[in-house]
Amino acid sequence: MKEHYASAVVELLQAGTKPADVFRGLDQTLAAHSHSKLKSAILRSVERKMSRLQSHAKTTVTVVSEEAAKKQKAEITKALTLLEAEPEYELSIDEAVIGGLLVESAHRRLDTTYRSALVKLYRNITK
């Protein structure tokens, strides 16, 4: 039930309806159906859905260091093209990847990190 309310709120917000109008309408609907107790759960669900939508909308590139990002500019551009992603991206530094890069956009990713390759190698050898 709460998921249905949450989905409806998110769709209205995405369609451009003013947030104040959306939440006033929500309050009235919940009161009319005696579902006011669900309000806090619905709002939490809306928050999760919105943050998921926002994270899907952005592209993240993870590399081992700033210098690596500069050296791998060409690979990053190629990866973004492969994923059909926008050229703007958020850069993330993670030493754990060891080398290579990880590009995530919407629900697709391209993983050429050394860490993933080494984990795969280890699991193949020790199978």
């Binding site: 492969l82 629900h107 697709r108 795969k120």
Partner: peptide, 20 residues
């Protein structure tokens, strides 16, 4: 065995579909 695994390791850059 390690040499054979390294030679056959596939790390081609193919986009994968992921979910959460």
């Amino acid at each position: 065995k390690i040499k054979k695994e390294i030679e056959s390791l596939d790390i081609t850059s193919i986009p994968e579909e992921v979910g959460v």
